[in-house]
């Protein structure tokens, strides 16, 4: 070894840069499709203020139940409000809620799972509480919480976060349980790092990948669940346009005016599909070993 290293470095070997995670991601077909779908919907939502042809809240009794036409591309509802405009603004609300839930569960669930996985004594009590939460169907729990907290966008985020935290905590705990046994963790202890430091600097960064992937699914689940809550009337209060709310508006007229529910329904499907495809791509990029096994 010493001899080999001592050789004059006359011709340094060309250093081939391995493709980074981002390049791998963008090369992944399902991630690209997912990004395209999700990105297109998200951009529409973000630009709703400019793209929406009408005020999503303004009633107009002369234009009630208009089928799709040149004036109203996707028709109008029973108050004469433009479905396209309502859907565009609904995307904003839905994505805010989805992102909020994904972030909150990542922070709270990640912290809970990390503590449970790292400190064995905390594991039992914490995970029993998580199991108890998980025993309720997530959507049912969210409905109960949202109903108890009262209808508002923030309360929907809170309710859905509580409902989905156990999943995030479990994923994080599983990752920490694996990583804590790696020799470099013992190595970190051997240089005098405190347990907190070992967890934050050495264990967590190596246990993050499954959580990142999981959160894309939680995002999608939250968008779906928000639609369910709005549909049942415990979402953000009307007349706030939300995707689930617009579907609910069309519920009673599904025979006569199906366009009311179809448009936001298709958008939800696109968002969820896009997020799931992105999640698959992310998983493959973060754990290349899994890739061949899945295809």
């Amino acid at each position: 070894m010493a001899g080999v290293e001592a050789l004059p470095a006359a011709a340094p070997a060309p250093r081939v840069k391995a493709p980074g995670a981002l390049a791998r991601l963008l090369a992944h077909p399902s991630f690209r499709w997912g990004l395209l779908l999700f990105g297109a919907v998200a951009v529409c939502g973000l630009l709703a203020d400019w793209l929406a042809p009408y005020d999503p809240l303004r009633n107009n009794f002369r234009t009630r139940f208009q089928p799709p036409s040149e004036t109203f591309w996707f028709g109008t509802d029973r108050f004469g409000r433009d479905i396209l405009s309502r859907t565009l603004f609904g995307i904003q609300v839905s994505l805010r809620i989805g992102l909020g839930v994904a972030l909150v569960t990542a922070l709270v669930g990640g912290a809970i799972g990390a503590v449970a996985g790292f400190w064995r004594r905390a594991d039992g009590p914490i995970m029993r509480v998580m199991d108890a939460l998980m025993a309720f169907p997530a959507v049912l729990l969210a409905i109960a919480l949202a109903a108890a907290l009262g209808p508002s966008e923030l309360n929907v985020i809170v309710a859905l976060s509580i409902a989905y935290v156990p999943r995030t905590a479990r994923v994080m705990r599983a990752g920490v349980l694996v990583v804590r046994e790696f020799p470099f963790v013992e190595g970190a202890r051997a240089i005098g790092a405190s347990p907190t430091r070992v967890l934050l600097r050495h264990v967590l960064p190596n246990a993050m990948a499954p959580l990142v992937v999981q959160q894309t699914y939680v995002f999608a689940l939250a968008v779906l669940a928000e639609a369910v809550l709005s549909f049942l009337g415990v979402g953000p209060p009307p007349p706030t346009p939300t995707l689930g709310g617009v579907i609910a508006d069309g519920r009673d007229f599904i025979q006569e005016a199906p366009w009311i529910s179809i448009t936001p329904g298709v958008v939800i499907a696109l968002v969820v599909l896009g997020l799931n495809l992105m999640g698959d791509g992310l998983r493959d990029a973060l754990d290349p070993r899994l890739r061949t096994a899945i295809r």
């Binding site: 790696f182 020799p183 470099f184 190595g187 051997a190 050495h202 960064p205 190596n206």
Partner: peptide, 12 residues
Amino acid sequence: FQEPMSSLNPVL
């Protein structure tokens, strides 16, 4: 330690 392959933190 014995294992130089896994005794270093891969992300640092």
